[in-house]
Amino acid sequence: MTFDNNKLMFSVVIPLYNKANHIQRAIDSVLNQNVQNFELIVVNDGSTDGSEKVVEQYVDSRIILINQENGGESAARNRGIKEAQAPYIAFLDADDAWEADFLLTISELITEYPEAGAYATALKTLEVTGEYRSYTYTPLPSYPWKGIIENYFDCLSNGSYPLSSTTTCVRKEVLIKTGNFNRSLRIGPDIDMWIRVFLTTKIAFTTKICAIYYRDAENRSVDIKDFSKKELELIVYLHKYISEPKMTKEYLFFFKKFLSNKLNAITLRYINNNRKQEAMLVLFQHWGLLDFRQKLNVLLRLLLSKKLIDFARKYYA
């Protein structure tokens, strides 16, 4: 497949909310792409810090700024998808950036894997210490590798996330089939979307690093209590895919493993933060999703912690 460099190929969608200190970096990384046949749609989702003013400083007809009332990242991405004019929609977060060859690499994946409807690259994280951290994407081969992801759920069950809201490009026709990003999810609407994408089309991926996730960005601090609650809401919501007709036995095996691993992590996080009642509630409400070892491990942790507390009380009485 060959592409006409003068024909619009990509619609780049950036949801923007209070990222005045970072949006320029994201926009510049798009404008500096080796492939230039794109439009850049920035959806300002009711920013209160003047983020939209940074976008307005650019004089480039390819940049489209849309202002709307605050509705969340999913609402902003959905608006960007609706306004997109190109056949391929690439997503980028306002506080991250692409390497100069991101769109070129995606173009190569489109050419080499015409049967796919979604494409993604690896990324690296710039920590607050200034050090870069790269990732493995088990069970996918290490770099250099590219190909079709045979089982996205196998990746998720291993704690691997080859698709992200900064490294993924999807055919618009596929997004029309999958439907919008879910606005009701407070965390993980992208995971929900990528699951629907995987069940709809093939996904081509390369372990080549073409994007940077910046850990220093504002609004990325995590409240453990709130995070665990939101994550639990996500797992409960995703549980519906167990009855999805397109779920093969192999898909289902790894999907259940992914859910159980998430629930196990939430339960242990509650225990480690001295919130045993909440851990017990999660354990018994979702007993059927945890495997035997996870159940045993959590129960032992609960019992062990109680014994230690009782011992300490007697010792210091």
Rank of each mutant, 00 (worst) to 15 (best):
P189Y: 00
E108Q: 12
C155Q: 12
I187G: 04
T200H: 07
T178F: 04
N67M: 11
E69M: 14
I149G: 05
P189R: 02
T166M: 13
G159Q: 06
E108W: 01
D154L: 10
A204D: 11
T105V: 10
I89A: 05
L92V: 04
G130L: 09
L126Y: 05
G71L: 04
R79L: 15
E112H: 14
R171K: 15
G188V: 07
I148K: 08
I81M: 10
L199S: 01
T206V: 03
E131V: 00
S160I: 04
A84D: 08
Y137E: 09
W98G: 06
T200Y: 06
Y152H: 11
R196T: 09
A100G: 07
R186F: 11
S142W: 00
E150F: 08
N151V: 12
T206A: 07
Q68N: 13
A94C: 11
C169Y: 03
L199A: 05
R79K: 15
Q85M: 14
G179Q: 00
N151W: 08
I176Q: 04
S157I: 12
R79F: 12
I176W: 01
Y132K: 01
C169T: 15
L104Y: 07
V197C: 03
V197H: 06
N67K: 15
I203R: 01
I191H: 03
I176A: 02
D101M: 12
